[in-house]
Simulated scan of single mutants.
Amino acid sequence: MTGDSNGLIRPTQAVVLAGGQGSRLRPYTDDRPKPMVEIPGTGTPIIGHQLAWLADEGVTDAVVSCGHLAEVLQKWLESADLPLRVTTVVETEPLGRGGGLKYAAAHLPHADQPWYATNGDIWTRFSLRDMAAFHAERDATATLALARPRIPWGAVETDTFGHITDFVEAPPSPFLINAGVYVFSAEFTELLPSRGDHERTTFPKLAREKRLAGFPIPQGAYWRAIDTAKDLTEAAKELAALGR
Protein backbone atom coordinates (compact mmCIF):
# COMPACT_ATOMS: atom_id res chain seq x y z
CA MET A 1 0.00 0.00 0.00
CA THR A 2 1.37 3.42 -0.96
CA GLY A 3 0.14 6.95 -0.45
CA ASP A 4 0.67 10.28 -2.17
CA SER A 5 1.15 13.85 -0.97
CA ASN A 6 -2.62 14.16 -0.49
CA GLY A 7 -2.77 11.11 1.77
CA LEU A 8 -4.68 8.96 -0.73
CA ILE A 9 -3.98 5.24 -0.37
CA ARG A 10 -3.28 3.38 -3.59
CA PRO A 11 -3.31 -0.43 -3.89
CA THR A 12 -0.10 -2.40 -4.37
CA GLN A 13 -1.85 -5.77 -4.81
CA ALA A 14 -4.11 -7.18 -7.51
CA VAL A 15 -6.08 -10.22 -8.62
CA VAL A 16 -6.04 -11.33 -12.26
CA LEU A 17 -8.96 -13.59 -13.22
CA ALA A 18 -7.45 -15.96 -15.77
CA GLY A 19 -9.62 -19.08 -15.58
CA GLY A 20 -11.86 -18.69 -18.63
CA GLN A 21 -11.98 -21.37 -21.32
CA GLY A 22 -11.95 -18.93 -24.23
CA SER A 23 -14.14 -21.15 -26.42
CA ARG A 24 -14.69 -18.33 -28.94
CA LEU A 25 -10.93 -18.03 -29.42
CA ARG A 26 -10.43 -21.58 -30.63
CA PRO A 27 -8.18 -22.98 -32.04
CA TYR A 28 -5.86 -20.57 -30.17
CA THR A 29 -7.16 -21.85 -26.83
CA ASP A 30 -7.02 -25.56 -27.66
CA ASP A 31 -3.63 -25.88 -25.94
CA ARG A 32 -3.50 -22.79 -23.72
CA PRO A 33 -5.80 -20.69 -21.53
CA LYS A 34 -7.18 -17.47 -22.94
CA PRO A 35 -4.71 -15.12 -21.14
CA MET A 36 -1.82 -17.07 -22.69
CA VAL A 37 -2.89 -16.18 -26.24
CA GLU A 38 -0.47 -13.77 -27.90
CA ILE A 39 -1.61 -10.70 -29.76
CA PRO A 40 0.18 -11.03 -33.13
CA GLY A 41 3.32 -8.94 -33.35
CA THR A 42 3.74 -8.31 -29.62
CA GLY A 43 5.72 -11.43 -28.69
CA THR A 44 4.01 -11.61 -25.29
CA PRO A 45 0.80 -13.28 -24.09
CA ILE A 46 -2.06 -11.09 -22.90
CA ILE A 47 -1.30 -11.77 -19.24
CA GLY A 48 2.29 -10.65 -19.75
CA HIS A 49 1.04 -7.25 -20.89
CA GLN A 50 -1.35 -7.10 -17.93
CA LEU A 51 1.30 -7.88 -15.34
CA ALA A 52 3.67 -5.30 -16.86
CA TRP A 53 0.88 -2.70 -16.73
CA LEU A 54 0.05 -3.51 -13.12
CA ALA A 55 3.72 -3.23 -12.14
CA ASP A 56 4.00 0.13 -13.94
CA GLU A 57 1.02 1.30 -11.86
CA GLY A 58 2.68 0.45 -8.55
CA VAL A 59 1.48 -3.13 -7.97
CA THR A 60 4.07 -5.34 -6.27
CA ASP A 61 1.98 -8.50 -5.65
CA ALA A 62 -0.53 -10.24 -7.92
CA VAL A 63 -2.67 -13.33 -7.45
CA VAL A 64 -3.53 -15.07 -10.71
CA SER A 65 -6.67 -17.20 -10.56
CA CYS A 66 -6.23 -20.11 -12.98
CA GLY A 67 -8.72 -22.61 -14.38
CA HIS A 68 -8.71 -24.01 -17.92
CA LEU A 69 -5.27 -25.53 -18.69
CA ALA A 70 -3.92 -23.98 -15.49
CA GLU A 71 -0.63 -25.86 -15.74
CA VAL A 72 0.25 -24.08 -19.01
CA LEU A 73 -0.21 -20.67 -17.43
CA GLN A 74 1.60 -21.67 -14.24
CA LYS A 75 4.58 -23.00 -16.21
CA TRP A 76 4.88 -19.74 -18.15
CA LEU A 77 4.64 -17.64 -14.99
CA GLU A 78 7.35 -19.72 -13.32
CA SER A 79 9.75 -19.26 -16.24
CA ALA A 80 8.99 -15.63 -17.17
CA ASP A 81 11.01 -12.67 -15.94
CA LEU A 82 8.16 -10.91 -14.17
CA PRO A 83 8.21 -7.33 -12.81
CA LEU A 84 6.27 -8.23 -9.64
CA ARG A 85 5.61 -11.14 -7.27
CA VAL A 86 2.97 -13.57 -8.56
CA THR A 87 1.01 -16.28 -6.74
CA THR A 88 -1.34 -18.65 -8.58
CA VAL A 89 -4.50 -20.28 -7.24
CA VAL A 90 -6.73 -22.92 -8.82
CA GLU A 91 -10.34 -23.55 -7.82
CA THR A 92 -10.84 -27.20 -6.86
CA GLU A 93 -14.52 -26.84 -7.77
CA PRO A 94 -16.50 -24.18 -9.68
CA LEU A 95 -17.33 -21.26 -7.39
CA GLY A 96 -18.83 -18.83 -9.90
CA ARG A 97 -17.42 -15.41 -10.71
CA GLY A 98 -18.00 -13.95 -7.25
CA GLY A 99 -16.87 -17.04 -5.38
CA GLY A 100 -13.77 -17.31 -7.55
CA LEU A 101 -12.90 -13.67 -6.95
CA LYS A 102 -13.32 -14.13 -3.18
CA TYR A 103 -11.16 -17.27 -3.20
CA ALA A 104 -8.38 -15.49 -5.08
CA ALA A 105 -8.60 -12.39 -2.87
CA ALA A 106 -8.07 -14.58 0.21
CA HIS A 107 -4.52 -15.17 -1.08
CA LEU A 108 -3.58 -11.50 -1.33
CA PRO A 109 -0.73 -10.58 1.04
CA HIS A 110 -2.55 -7.71 2.78
CA ALA A 111 -6.17 -8.49 3.70
CA ASP A 112 -6.62 -5.10 5.36
CA GLN A 113 -5.64 -3.07 2.30
CA PRO A 114 -7.37 -2.13 -0.99
CA TRP A 115 -6.75 -4.08 -4.17
CA TYR A 116 -7.17 -4.02 -7.92
CA ALA A 117 -8.72 -6.76 -10.04
CA THR A 118 -8.81 -7.33 -13.77
CA ASN A 119 -10.28 -9.88 -16.14
CA GLY A 120 -7.63 -11.96 -17.86
CA ASP A 121 -8.77 -11.13 -21.40
CA ILE A 122 -8.41 -7.34 -21.21
CA TRP A 123 -5.67 -5.39 -23.03
CA THR A 124 -5.66 -1.82 -21.82
CA ARG A 125 -3.52 1.09 -20.72
CA PHE A 126 -4.75 3.89 -18.48
CA SER A 127 -3.79 5.28 -15.08
CA LEU A 128 -4.78 2.94 -12.27
CA ARG A 129 -3.40 5.55 -9.89
CA ASP A 130 -6.01 8.03 -11.14
CA MET A 131 -8.70 5.36 -10.82
CA ALA A 132 -7.65 4.63 -7.23
CA ALA A 133 -7.80 8.37 -6.43
CA PHE A 134 -11.31 8.52 -7.97
CA HIS A 135 -12.32 5.53 -5.82
CA ALA A 136 -10.98 7.11 -2.63
CA GLU A 137 -12.47 10.54 -3.30
CA ARG A 138 -15.94 8.98 -3.56
CA ASP A 139 -15.42 6.79 -0.51
CA ALA A 140 -16.56 3.85 -2.64
CA THR A 141 -16.42 0.21 -1.62
CA ALA A 142 -15.95 -0.84 -5.23
CA THR A 143 -15.16 1.08 -8.42
CA LEU A 144 -15.57 -0.25 -11.95
CA ALA A 145 -13.64 1.07 -14.93
CA LEU A 146 -16.09 2.00 -17.69
CA ALA A 147 -15.34 1.78 -21.41
CA ARG A 148 -17.15 2.97 -24.50
CA PRO A 149 -16.25 0.32 -27.10
CA ARG A 150 -16.63 0.81 -30.82
CA ILE A 151 -19.71 -0.69 -32.43
CA PRO A 152 -18.50 -3.33 -34.92
CA TRP A 153 -20.90 -2.13 -37.63
CA GLY A 154 -21.20 1.05 -39.61
CA ALA A 155 -23.81 3.48 -38.28
CA VAL A 156 -26.26 5.58 -40.26
CA GLU A 157 -27.18 9.14 -39.28
CA THR A 158 -30.49 10.67 -40.34
CA ASP A 159 -32.21 14.02 -39.99
CA THR A 160 -35.58 14.50 -38.28
CA PHE A 161 -37.42 13.97 -41.58
CA GLY A 162 -35.73 10.63 -42.25
CA HIS A 163 -33.14 11.61 -44.84
CA ILE A 164 -29.78 9.87 -44.45
CA THR A 165 -27.14 12.48 -43.75
CA ASP A 166 -23.99 10.44 -43.10
CA PHE A 167 -22.40 7.03 -42.68
CA VAL A 168 -20.06 6.49 -39.72
CA GLU A 169 -17.70 3.51 -39.69
CA ALA A 170 -17.47 1.71 -36.29
CA PRO A 171 -18.55 4.63 -34.06
CA PRO A 172 -18.14 4.56 -30.27
CA SER A 173 -21.09 3.02 -28.45
CA PRO A 174 -23.47 5.53 -26.83
CA PHE A 175 -23.43 3.30 -23.74
CA LEU A 176 -20.70 2.77 -21.15
CA ILE A 177 -19.86 -0.85 -20.28
CA ASN A 178 -18.03 -2.62 -17.47
CA ALA A 179 -14.42 -2.64 -18.70
CA GLY A 180 -13.33 -5.55 -16.50
CA VAL A 181 -10.92 -3.53 -14.32
CA TYR A 182 -11.72 -2.74 -10.68
CA VAL A 183 -10.58 -1.05 -7.48
CA PHE A 184 -11.87 -2.64 -4.28
CA SER A 185 -11.63 -1.46 -0.69
CA ALA A 186 -10.46 -4.03 1.85
CA GLU A 187 -13.98 -4.67 3.18
CA PHE A 188 -15.27 -5.63 -0.27
CA THR A 189 -13.83 -9.15 0.01
CA GLU A 190 -16.23 -10.09 2.81
CA LEU A 191 -19.20 -8.85 0.77
CA LEU A 192 -18.51 -11.32 -2.03
CA PRO A 193 -20.55 -14.55 -2.18
CA SER A 194 -18.67 -17.78 -1.45
CA ARG A 195 -20.43 -19.16 -4.52
CA GLY A 196 -22.23 -17.40 -7.32
CA ASP A 197 -22.04 -14.18 -9.29
CA HIS A 198 -21.17 -10.93 -7.49
CA GLU A 199 -22.51 -8.91 -10.44
CA ARG A 200 -26.00 -10.17 -9.58
CA THR A 201 -25.65 -9.86 -5.80
CA THR A 202 -22.86 -7.69 -4.39
CA PHE A 203 -22.71 -5.01 -7.09
CA PRO A 204 -26.49 -4.27 -7.16
CA LYS A 205 -26.55 -4.02 -3.35
CA LEU A 206 -23.61 -1.60 -3.34
CA ALA A 207 -25.26 0.42 -6.11
CA ARG A 208 -28.46 0.81 -4.08
CA GLU A 209 -26.35 1.98 -1.13
CA LYS A 210 -24.40 4.46 -3.31
CA ARG A 211 -21.15 2.64 -2.55
CA LEU A 212 -20.42 1.57 -6.14
CA ALA A 213 -18.58 4.02 -8.41
CA GLY A 214 -17.85 4.08 -12.14
CA PHE A 215 -14.57 5.47 -13.49
CA PRO A 216 -14.75 6.33 -17.22
CA ILE A 217 -11.54 5.31 -18.96
CA PRO A 218 -10.02 8.57 -20.27
CA GLN A 219 -10.67 9.42 -23.91
CA GLY A 220 -7.79 8.24 -26.06
CA ALA A 221 -6.70 5.49 -23.64
CA TYR A 222 -6.46 2.04 -25.22
CA TRP A 223 -8.95 -0.68 -24.21
CA ARG A 224 -10.05 -3.90 -25.86
CA ALA A 225 -11.52 -7.18 -24.64
CA ILE A 226 -9.99 -10.16 -26.48
CA ASP A 227 -12.92 -12.53 -27.06
CA THR A 228 -12.57 -13.73 -30.66
CA ALA A 229 -9.96 -14.27 -33.36
CA LYS A 230 -11.18 -11.04 -34.97
CA ASP A 231 -10.35 -9.19 -31.73
CA LEU A 232 -6.78 -10.50 -31.96
CA THR A 233 -6.46 -9.24 -35.53
CA GLU A 234 -7.97 -5.85 -34.69
CA ALA A 235 -5.82 -5.46 -31.56
CA ALA A 236 -2.67 -6.22 -33.57
CA LYS A 237 -3.58 -3.50 -36.09
CA GLU A 238 -4.44 -0.97 -33.41
CA LEU A 239 -1.31 -1.58 -31.37
CA ALA A 240 0.88 -1.41 -34.48
CA ALA A 241 -0.71 1.95 -35.30
CA LEU A 242 0.00 3.13 -31.76
CA GLY A 243 3.60 1.93 -32.00
CA ARG A 244 3.25 -0.58 -29.13
Rank of each mutant, 00 (worst) to 15 (best):
T2R: 15
S5H: 02
L8T: 14
P11D: 06
T12M: 01
Q13D: 03
V15A: 05
A18W: 14
Q21T: 15
L25I: 03
Y28A: 13
T29D: 07
R32P: 02
K34C: 08
P35H: 03
M36R: 04
E38D: 03
I39H: 00
P40I: 01
T42A: 05
G43S: 10
T44Y: 02
P45A: 03
P45Y: 05
G48F: 11
Q50K: 10
G58M: 02
T60I: 08
S65A: 12
C66A: 09
L69E: 04
V72K: 03
Q74T: 11
K75V: 04
E78P: 08
S79K: 15
A80N: 07
D81H: 08
P83M: 08
R85F: 06
V86L: 11
T87S: 11
V89D: 02
V90W: 00
V90E: 01
T92G: 01
T92K: 10
T92P: 02
E93K: 10
G98E: 05
L101F: 13
A104F: 06
A104S: 13
L108N: 15
L108I: 15
Q113L: 15
W115L: 10
A117K: 13
G120A: 06
W123D: 02
W123Q: 03
T124E: 01
F126W: 07
L128Q: 04
A132P: 09
E137Y: 04
R138P: 13
A140V: 13
T143Y: 08
T143D: 09
L144E: 08
R148P: 03
P152M: 05
W153G: 04
G154A: 13
V156D: 02
E157C: 07
E157L: 13
D159W: 02
T160S: 04
H163F: 07
T165V: 11
A170V: 09
S173Y: 09
P174H: 04
F175T: 06
L176Q: 08
A179C: 04
V181D: 00
E187H: 11
S194A: 10
R195M: 14
G196S: 09
H198Y: 15
E199G: 07
T201C: 06
K210I: 02
R211W: 05
R211C: 07
G214A: 12
F215T: 11
Q219F: 11
A225K: 13
I226E: 00
D231E: 05
T233Y: 13
E234S: 07
E234Q: 12
A235W: 11
E238W: 08
A240N: 14
L242H: 03
G243H: 09
